[in-house]
């Protein structure tokens, strides 16, 4: 009967309940999308790192990483690394942030790579760049094979595409030959950002150090660390907003049902049963809002300019947290319900 009573009351106040569910669902959907954005940073970085197929990186001693925190190395470092014991393959990589197109140029992550060996990302359609003037682009840039692309003012021809290849918050990746990358990034000087290696060197050339993939991954993610902190904070605030919405509805419900509760108590309904009624309402509201929120998040997620990958943990966590939020939010209402004097039932309506 508790469930029937709670459900009937929600039906009775359906307009308010619908508004509350819509509001909470929207908040939940934004929370989910934000967690998807945050997780998307990890997923795109992992995908890009995996595409290099390296075991580690040789960077300049003191450099924070091979990408964002790079300190350029002389091109000759590659040969020195290849001769080290423990290294089975080594290739130079150049990384820089550039733009493609004219008029409204788009920011890209430029990777200068060699055409075979380690650190040559797999191309989904077409082939890797082999000659000067050839470029492989992320499908996020919406270029096709054979298209002409202006990269930092220099013309390139698309020879391959990689599906949704992005890093640093959805910025598309492009691959060119090492020489072209050096021309664009280092004015043609034989300078490289890092050396990708297979194997683990026992010693490294003077002035360099070995960096594991995990550290290189952190280097790429460093660019979005502030954004991620902001997103997490907003997510926390959104949970509080959701709790406030549900709490308001439950509290109002408790206020308006004072006479009902008084009658229930006067006719022998225990406090626990009345509390279960309110808790059930809060949980029902939260779970329905979570379901609608998930649906909305699934619909709006792909429209975001950054990769939105809603983690499975969030899908599990959402209803769990939603129930917790519902329970927390109903506390004020529960206190109100417990305080109801059954003698109110004898007063005139």
């Amino acid at each position: 009967m508790v469930m029937r009573s709670a459900f009937r009351d929600l039906q009775w106040r359906r307009r308010r309940v619908l508004i509350a569910v819509a509001g909470t669902a929207l908040v939940f959907s934004i929370t989910l999308v934000l967690s998807g954005v945050s997780h998307g940073f990890d997923v795109e970085t992992d995908r890009t790192m995996a595409s290099f197929g390296s075991d580690g990186w040789i960077v300049r001693d003191g450099a924070a990483g091979p990408f964002i925190g790079q300190a350029p190395l002389p091109g000759s470092t590659v040969e020195a690394v290849r001769s080290e014991t423990g290294i089975t393959a080594a290739n130079a990589v150049v990384f820089s942030r550039k733009t493609v197109g004219v008029g409204s140029p788009k920011e890209v992550n430029l990777f200068g790579v060699e055409h075979r060996g380690v650190a040559v990302p797999a191309v989904d359609h077409g082939r890797a760049p082999r000659e000067s003037g050839e470029i492989v682009v992320s499908t996020r840039l919406h270029y096709g094979i054979g298209d002409k692309v202006l990269l930092s003012g220099k013309p390139f021809r698309v020879v391959g595409t990689i599906s949704n290849s992005t890093v640093v918050a959805g910025v598309p990746n492009v691959l060119v030959t090492l020489t072209d990358a050096q021309t664009i990034s280092f004015a043609g000087q034989p300078i490289i950002s890092a050396v990708a290696v297979k194997g683990t060197p026992r010693v490294v050339p003077p002035g360099t150090r070995f960096m594991h993939n995990a550290d290189a991954r952190r280097d790429l993610l460093r660019a979005v660390s502030n954004a991620r902190s902001g997103i997490n904070l907003i997510g926390l605030l959104l949970w509080l907003v959701a709790a406030t919405i549900i709490g308001s509805v439950i509290y109002l419900s408790a206020l308006e049902r004072v006479r009902d509760f008084a009658v229930f108590k006067a006719t022998g309904t225990s406090n626990a049963t009345i509390l279960a009624d309110l808790v059930l309402q809060a949980v029902l509201l939260s779970l329905v809002a979570a379901g609608v929120g998930l649906l909305v998040a699934t619909l709006i997620g792909p429209r975001f300019p950054v990769p939105v990958v809603i983690p499975v943990s969030s899908l599990v966590l959402l209803p769990t947290l939603a129930v917790a939020v519902g329970l927390l939010a109903s506390l004020a209402g529960l206190r109100r319900a417990i305080a109801v004097d059954p003698a109110i039932a004898f007063t005139a309506a």
Partner: peptide, 21 residues
């Protein structure tokens, strides 16, 4: 609570029926 539930039935002046049920 048991006394209120099993020993007494009350008819209130304002009827006090639950409007949603």
């Amino acid at each position: 609570t048991a006394y209120r539930r099993h020993m007494v039935g009350i008819v209130f002046q304002a009827f006090n029926l639950v409007p949603s049920m």
